[in-house]
């Protein structure tokens, strides 16, 4: 092969790579710019909001953050959201890891029936069952309060997707795992806790993020269950800024900006777990 065509091939490769980076960058900007806009608009002077919506703010004003935090109890809503979302995620993992293990790795006749039963939940349009659900749970609400009672539908609601993802993942693990474990003298508890769970961490991470985001942003159940101001979560707190007279944009966008921080933090923490392990494998390939 002549050196000239070699140079051309390298140039072509470089061009291709360059083009790819440009496209990836373009996509990244299309994601980042609107998000930056959200933060920017929250600190923008409200009068300027409609006049120069997309430019850089001419003056910066953080007072709206103080205002939503103090006057509109966004802090209280944040705490409610954090408690509810974390408890849901933890309880959901406990239930779905055990169930997935039994479904995916253990041998019994009705495992697929149970899986199918749990998966029906993926297909139920949530809004349709709210009223009967609420009626069913009234005794619970009256006994433990709406903030605790809402955990029941939240955790149950996350089970289908969690079991679906975790059991799919566990099924993809090779059969040799159990064989090796048994040769090493593991009992079933050790097999579950020491071997299967650590191996399923990528799936656990996906499920954690998905469930957290789902509950963190859930509005409809919260709307019906958490009617009292003191109980409300962030998506409900956000409603406060829209009313008959229009929307208070600075307050809304400031609250949105506050609300994404925990989700992003969680992703950043889990991403290491998620992607470190996985890319180490494929880098050689």
């Amino acid at each position: 092969m002549s050196s000239r065509s070699n140079i051309a091939a390298i140039a072509f490769l470089k061009l291709k790579r360059g083009l790819a980076v440009v496209l990836l960058m373009g996509l990244a900007i299309s994601v980042l710019y609107p998000l930056a806009w959200t933060v920017m608009s929250s600190i923008r002077n409200p009068q300027e909001f409609f006049l120069n919506p997309w430019g850089l703010p001419t003056s910066i004003n953080f007072s709206v953050y103080k205002k939503v935090w103090n006057e509109f109890y966004v802090g209280r809503a944040l705490l409610n959201s954090l408690t509810i979302a974390s408890l849901t995620v933890i309880l959901s993992l406990a239930f779905s890891l055990t169930a997935s293990f039994a479904i995916a790795r253990m041998r019994w006749r009705f495992s697929n029936v149970v899986l199918a039963f749990l998966l029906t939940g993926l297909m139920i349009p949530g809004h349709s069952t709210i009223i009967p659900l609420y009626l069913t749970l009234i005794p619970v609400i009256e006994a433990v309060g709406a903030k605790n009672a809402i955990l029941i539908p939240y955790v149950a609601g996350t089970l289908p997707i969690s079991v679906f993802i975790i059991s799919s993942y566990m099924r993809s693990l090779p059969n040799s795992v159990e064989e090796a474990a048994i040769i090493d003298g593991c009992n079933i508890r050790q097999l579950f806790f020491r071997i299967i769970i650590p191996m399923s961490l990528p799936a656990v991470a996906s499920v954690t993020i998905f469930n957290f985001l789902g509950v963190w942003n859930e509005l409809m159940l919260a709307l019906v269950f958490l009617t009292k101001n003191a109980e409300q979560t962030l998506p409900l707190a956000l409603l406060r800024f829209s009313g008959r007279f229009g929307t208070q944009w600075s307050e809304t966008l400031a609250t949105v900006s506050i609300a994404v921080i925990p989700s992003i933090l969680l992703y950043v923490i889990l991403q290491e777990k998620l992607i470190k392990g996985m890319t180490a494998g494929s880098v050689k390939g």
């Binding site: 709210i130 009223i131 609420y134 709307l223 019906v224 009617t227 009292k228 101001n229 003191a230 409300q232 409900l236 707190a237 409603l239 406060r240 829209s242 009313g243 008959r244």
Partner: peptide, 16 residues
């Protein structure tokens, strides 16, 4: 107090 919603959402809450 329960004064967080308006319009459609208020209707949903109060009817439930």
């Amino acid at each position: 107090l329960m004064d967080n919603t308006w319009g459609d959402q208020y209707l949903t809450q109060i009817t439930t």
